[in-house]
């Protein structure tokens, strides 16, 4: 790692630790390994969103040329969001691509991601299935996103989830044993059992 990148990351750690957001448990940052090139970030699902109360872990890789090139960030926690791949966690956000500026920091990246969770951009999607649902069935999108938050990100339960769990169970009884693919299938098919079954069949 270049000298400038290392100094930067060390300083950024201090900045994040001192920041108000950490005090309020909004964001967290810690190294994966000792050498600061691979970091683990954590953000809390922002209030008044389906992700509220969820804990989202992020994988952050710092390039050799940091801060002149952006860090490589993806979600490790599965999330249902138009700009984040429900399969890989890859993120579509301009500041992680061509809009990156050398004066931005990991703290600003984490806060921008939180902002992205509150304000999705369905017209510039990473996950087309989610984006379509977001535009055509906003209600289903919201309950699906909060169901994913409950299942994967330790967010609190709500009433709607009983119905979804029931459908998951029905699919399981039909012989589909993989939980994640059951959830993906039902979510992608707007919780239509028949369609999800066809989706899962080879």
């Amino acid at each position: 790692m270049s000298n400038i990148a290392l100094t930067r990351i060390q300083r950024e750690f201090k900045e994040v630790i001192k920041s108000d957001e950490v005090k309020n448990c909004q964001i967290k940052l810690e190294p994966f390994e000792d050498n600061f090139t691979h970091l683990k970030g954590e953000i809390i699902g922002p209030p008044d969103t389906p992700y509220q109360g969820g804990k989202y872990t992020l994988d952050i890789v710092i390039p050799e040329t940091y801060p002149f090139n952006p860090p490589k960030v993806k979600f490790l926690t599965k999330i249902w969001h138009p700009n984040i791949s429900s399969q890989t966690g890859a993120i579509c956000l301009d500041i992680l691509k061509d809009q990156w500026a050398a004066a931005m920091t990991l703290r600003t990246v984490l806060l921008s991601l939180q902002a992205l969770m509150s304000a999705a951009e369905p017209d510039d999607p990473q996950d087309a299935v989610v984006a379509t649902q977001f535009k055509q069935h906003p209600e289903i999108f919201r309950s699906t996103a909060s169901f994913w938050a409950y299942v994967y990100a330790e967010a609190p339960r709500n009433e709607k989830m009983k119905e979804y769990e029931e459908k998951l169970k029905q699919l399981q009884e039909m012989g589909f044993h993989e939980k994640n693919s059951r959830i993906t299938a039902l979510s992608s098919k707007n919780w239509d059992l028949q369609a999800a079954m066809e989706f899962l069949l080879p």
Binding site: I4, T7, R8, R11, P67, A102, A103
Partner: peptide, 8 residues
């Protein structure tokens, strides 16, 4: 001054 890129 503190440079906002390298923090030096």
């Amino acid at each position: 001054y503190v440079c906002e890129i390298c923090y030096a």
